[in-house]
Design a protein around this nucleic acid. Structure first.
Lengths: 224, 224
DNA sequence: TCCTTTTCTCGTCATCATGACGATAATCCA
DNA sequence: TGGATTATCGTCATGATGACGAGAAAAGGA
């Protein structure tokens, strides 16, 4: 039995919250095609490598860490025959959510790496569409899961968690209602007992991510 | 630049509601590997073919129709190095939802085709996991979209729509509350003006699928 | 024709989640 | 010591939901 030959890549939508907005990790391409243009980080899947393994490897190569507190999940696959001028390449896109923390962004393959606010960025290949799908996935997942904590360090305040929602959704949220929701939804967050020190204002209690897989009831955004 | 060589397939989780339960279309494999075992329908992506096109082609080959009222979306991709003994094969799984209507299920490639209630079925390859992911996707999408109508003919009653929910979720739903919800949620369904005739009981008004992409507010199941 | 059965459709009520917003608590800083 | 700032708790009206009652409109049988 004969069948067409493909190459398979993984591409990463690496998101974080920096400076109060949702940002994505981009690399400047160091080889053809699209040499010199901005693109999502990614690369070919190796001969004996599972898909999630390839995604984690690329993430480690591009960001230096996939540490705890992060999150990695598959978005979708893209296989238009014309999407890569080198030939028939199917890419499996992954979504990674990371806290802002020390992220060197010193790429191995790529000439440069940079955080950029999400939006219409004019990326190489079909990466604008992949980015849009990844961002929408992240926005949607924040509604139904405690995943916003993946953008935060292991211990965080309710206010920090709220600012993640505000950055990802691009909306302002009432702090008092959000506090009630976060602390009353089972499995959303769990208190550590500790509090912040040295910050202005009243000290805030510190929390960790809760054990729930889904929020019940969910935390719906107003926009849609 | 050299890179590993892959084959790419599409596999289909074709779901319908028959006899009050959620059922999946299976085929008995007519060639190695797993000859004679039950599997999801699918096949290799052709050399010049887009992924959704390949999925639609396979669906047409296996079921005879992808007609209006149906729905097709990508689930995810599966690429474990050992998932196919023939070599390195990545499969892109698609979810298809169809009304029960005349579905011949006379396969072209496959020896036999059959509807089976979803569950632990002992399928070939990693198809049990793909099926589980597809079923969970369908269950979840019913909460947030008017997609249940994809299981119904173009015009349907509220009761028929409710029975779709009950079959897919495996729960019983109060007919009066469901009626209120379906008719009061904007874009869920739209009345045709016609009614059923010849059925026992009071005639029911007929509806079409609404234009909304998402249900606001959603229709949440109790289980999770 | 009349009654029963069946199913659809509309209402009622208590409860819960939510948005809007007031008020208090606990820290830092001048 | 007295703001300024931020966290936390409370109140209230509104809307969505689950549980359930009751009427409406057909088919079918005596």
């Amino acid at each position: 039995m004969s069948y067409p030959v493909f190459a398979v890549t993984v591409d990463l939508v690496v998101l974080t919250v920096r400076e109060g907005e949702l940002q994505v990790l981009l690399v400047r391409r160091g080889c053809e095609p699209f040499l010199g243009e901005w693109a999502l980080p990614g690369g070919f899947v190796l001969a004996d490598e599972d898909l999630p393994t390839a995604a984690r490897r690329e993430l480690a190569e591009e960001t230096g860490l996939d540490g705890p507190g992060g999150h990695l999940e598959q978005i979708a696959s893209y296989g238009d025959p014309d999407r890569d001028p080198r030939g028939r390449v199917v890419t499996v896109a992954y979504l990674a959510l990371l806290p802002d923390l020390p992220t060197p962004t010193a790429g191995t393959d790529a000439a440069e790496a940079e955080w950029r606010p999400v939006g219409e960025l004019g990326l190489a290949f079909d990466h604008d569409r992949i980015l849009a799908d990844g961002v929408e996935r992240a926005r949607s997942k924040l509604e139904y899961t405690p995943l916003a904590a993946a953008f935060c360090p292991p211990e965080f305040t309710i206010a920090a968690l709220r600012q993640v929602y505000e950055a990802v959704w691009g909306e302002t949220i009432d702090p008092r209602n959000f506090h009630r929701k976060a602390t009353s939804t089972p499995g959303f967050v769990s208190a550590t007992g500790a509090s912040t020190e040295g910050e202005p204002g009243r000290p805030a209690r510190l929390f960790r991510r809760g054990e729930a897989a889904v929020l019940n009831p969910p935390l719906l955004r107003r926009g849609a």
